[in-house]
Design a protein around this nucleic acid. Structure first.
Lengths: 354, 354
DNA sequence: GGGAGCTGTGAGAGCGCTCTCTCACGTTTA
DNA sequence: TAAACGTGAGAGAGCGCTCTCACAGCTCCC
């Protein structure tokens, strides 16, 4: 007993030099003593229970103030089984374009805003390597967070569903591929593409090509499908090249398209970043935009206003995707039922490129 | 009371159905029973203690496997007083340009990579409003994280120092203004600017203007100071306009400069984003770059390769800033001494704009 | 051959909090 | 006036883990 105490004191000594530089962090107990009440009552006050006498309440609050009491989240989590923080996973390949693209930063901002409003914390996981898959799983399963959001899915990633099956609230941005399903937020890709293609037709364009996104991502797939469907309806031929959502791939794909069909007079590009690449290729090839070739992008990131010429594009509500991701996840974590899919509207923003 | 209880029970019911879907998460205790050893031994194995008999070790590991045991972080934190997660704060105004600029995403990536390597978690706090100041303080003081990084400081923000005084490990990116000091990482602004200005002089430029950044941010201040110092040394006149690191402000500042001194033949711009704005203004004004006006930016974000013409710029190692931020913070949290300032080198990347 | 020194395991005491249960004290009702 | 009821506070049992200490079993050397 004696020795036990000494040991503990030694440990405390180390802590003190490391953290709080001498100042002990007050506990519920200390506040209770100071206020002359029990721990339970302080807990009630701190957690906003209504069944506390107003006078006692005030006394406790004063004690809290004076001691600078802040609840210990670990202790709280241990008993409540909640952490009040949520993970946002931005999977591997998506993060490659992380710095260049503006989609993920936008989603992160939306997520952050909405979580802040709910007084929850954001744990960001940029899954940069294959090993981080296991890491994310362990992390989520360990109960570090109350739920997980996936900012973008590649292929038929089994992770979201695996987590959901373990009872962890999960929401994805973008419809998950494969038959395993989790609740998701997505935008109306087809509707947006339809508006874009119709706009091109309205401008009198006859040979409308597309630069598609990667076909293992739902955004790539659906935008291409939308394009094909719309052209089929208007009995036009599809002219397709595929990129990977990077600027370079857009430039390259555009060169390919010009070779395949030098007569094309319009191109719908599945992302703004690729569209920027395409615009550069067209400029180099001496084609005027939109006079010779009209160009429409997708996303409406900030950059779209600053391309040469400014890009006509399909806007998706990026910030709102992030916000809705959080709202749905919080509902789920709160035990509410949510619809398995929430589709946000897209709209055509006409600038100068088409 | 009755209703409260029923409410809680309902909630519990929901949890059970939501989480662990009937499956109780195994505890150390269960693993210990299964392996036929004590909790302490299991703990030792799980935490990689070397003083465990290899055979017992294997038995325990098997039990861990079979039960799918994952340690409960809250319980662990409660006793160790560590959380193994670190906060990255991106303060208010900086986050305005968050989606457009590529600096913060780059820093975040660096931070994320380095934390992942150390098996620590990243809590991202985009401080979007004035109220979040208090929130960050409470959060950090509450012991949610083992340390805090500030991605950028505005003015003489007292928060970093306040946290540091409370014994919380803190590292900032960019030298903090004011006399309150915390350890920081920064780049060699002056050195970079000097290289830029000298390059312009070498190209035969005589009237070198600058578009400075906001003068409440150390990056803005030091880059302007560097410019002034270098021009003074070569006995030239300073021609200064100020922006706020946004593209628009760069465009506007450039217009101002052209009015102030139509004869200028070079401009050093304190950020790539502003430089892009400046290039647009110059193009509109019919000035050729670099023939009529040479332009050099600062940052070397991805976008700099894609301006028209590609931007000559001062590279700062953005990813590395993030990584060093983490390394220093981990040392600090580990009780090691660290140098109060770590200055990373900058280098001139010559492309076509100068 | 017996004490000294290792090595490795178990016992047990918390970490700081929440939540149930119990009980004291008023207030209302028969 | 006594019994029934409602209200608000305290006691105490954990949540799941780590860490110190005690001690059993062993080797080693005088």
């Amino acid at each position: 007993m004696d020795t036990a105490e000494r040991g503990r004191d030694a440990l405390l000594g180390v802590w003190m030099s490391l953290r709080s530089s001498g100042r002990e962090r007050p506990t519920l107990e200390k506040v209770a003593v100071r206020a002359g009440v029990s721990r339970a009552t302080v807990s009630r006050v701190v957690n906003g229970s209504t069944t506390v006498d107003p006078r006692i309440r005030d006394t406790v609050l004063r004690a809290v103030q004076e001691l600078g009491y802040v609840p210990n989240p670990a202790a709280r989590s241990l008993v409540t089984q909640r952490t009040d923080s949520y993970a946002l996973v931005v999977p591997e390949r998506a993060s490659r374009v992380f710095s260049d693209d503006q989609f993920f930063p936008g989603v992160i901002r939306g997520v952050s805003q909405e979580l802040e409003a709910a007084d929850k914390q954001l744990v960001l996981m940029l899954a940069s390597s294959a090993t981080s898959h296991a890491r994310i799983e362990r992390y989520a399963m360990g109960g570090h967070v109350d739920g997980v959001m996936f900012a973008s899915l590649h292929g038929a990633d089994p992770l979201p569903h695996a987590l959901a099956r373990m009872g962890i609230p999960v929401v994805a941005s973008g419809r998950p591929l494969g038959h395993q399903t989790v609740p998701y937020i997505d935008v109306d890709h087809a509707g947006g593409v339809a508006k874009a293609v119709r706009h091109l037709l309205d401008q009198g364009c006859g040979r409308i090509a597309t630069i598609a996104g990667p076909q293992d991502m739902v955004a790539g797939i659906e935008r291409l499908a939308g394009y094909r469907a719309e052209l089929r309806d208007s009995r036009r031929r599809s002219i397709v090249a595929e990129g990977d959502f990077t600027r370079e791939s857009g430039a390259l794909a555009m060169r390919q398209l010009l070779e395949d069909d030098p007569q094309l007079d319009a191109v719908f590009v599945a992302s703004d970043l690729m569209a920027d690449g395409a615009l550069r290729t067209l400029r180099q090839a001496g084609r005027r935009v939109p006079d010779d070739v009209a160009v429409i992008g997708f996303d409406d990131v900030e950059m779209a206003r600053y391309t040469e010429p400014p890009l006509t594009t399909v806007r998706q509500p990026i910030l709102r995707i992030g916000r809705e991701l959080v709202r749905q996840l919080l509902r789920l974590a709160n035990g509410e039922e949510i619809e398995p899919a929430l589709i946000l509207p897209t709209e055509l923003v006409v600038r100068e490129s088409a």
